[in-house]
Design a protein around this nucleic acid. Sequence first.
DNA 1: TTGAACTTTCAGAAATTATTGAAAGACATA
DNA 2: TATGTCTTTCAATAATTTCTGAAAGTTCAA
Lengths: 168, 168
Amino acid sequence: MKLAEAKTQFIQEWGTFGSKWGVNRTMAQAHALLLVSAEPMSAENVMEELNISRGNANMNLRALIDWGLIRKTHISGERREFFYAEKDIWKVTRQVIKERKRRELEPLRNMLTEVGEGIQEESPQAEEFKKMVNELRKFSSSADVMLEKMVKSEQQWIFESLMKFMVK
Amino acid sequence: MKLAEAKTQFIQEWGTFGSKWGVNRTMAQAHALLLVSAEPMSAENVMEELNISRGNANMNLRALIDWGLIRKTHISGERREFFYAEKDIWKVTRQVIKERKRRELEPLRNMLTEVGEGIQEESPQAEEFKKMVNELRKFSSSADVMLEKMVKSEQQWIFESLMKFMVK
DNA sequence: TTGAACTTTCAGAAATTATTGAAAGACATA
DNA sequence: TATGTCTTTCAATAATTTCTGAAAGTTCAA
């Protein structure tokens, strides 16, 4: 297998994977591209590699910066900006957890609190609703604590530790 | 807050949440609806509650069955089918992990193996590519083991245990 | 075996999401 | 402050995803 084709396949499938998880396909592809690039890339490079427009490249690179997954840099003698990805996979994972938690999990938890409170009705329907909302709230609270620990942990050993612990 | 409006908000936001994670919004809404329903519901009921067509209701209820999140049942004297959701949140979580792992993580891991093997080239670019693919493979392997343990675990205590363990 | 009740399918339509490209903006140099 | 280079924005357009509804399929009681 040639490098170019392996790289293309990697980028394509990473894009597909991203889109199954609600991430813009192009954003995921740009991330994949930078992850395997030995050098920082310009917006121009990214446009060429992914066959996308300048606007699209700009928007998705900015989104990756907002997600904390890539950064801008400058190369001496060059005017334009270059982009490079965080390559430590554990750091990448933590960052993704952190952002998804903030953007998606926390609003959901707020909603659960909101809809769980202040329902006076005591019909079986109301009880069932309150019970489920409460179950979800308890669960999300545990998950939240766990994810927060992961975000703050410096090491990937969490996985290994968890594995050992759960042997049983 | 009235039950009806709390329920509507819950269903809507659950749908939004699902769509951010790559789950069809209507499928997530139907799941939310059944989660908080005290009784099994007919397709007709679901159509009315969510304001969707028969075809849409049918497809999304079937998808939920395929995901192992709801089941069909019969009510004596009734000809049509009724649907009810698994309500144990830990079981629901395990089932979602199991399915996403099977549908999305495993193909990705196969891809990593495929593109990582058989690249002869030894340029810095090729080395960088191979290194990253290998990092991802190692990481996904750990994650895979961890998720498999979670899927097989009978208890939600994993979270609590993990929390204690990680105190540090 | 017929037909009423219900379920499934899927081609076309609608809604949503993503992309383009041109214009405006920013910045550095002279 | 003019000019060239590069970046950002966003309205219009395109691509993708989802939904509808009618027809076909299934089931079952009579």
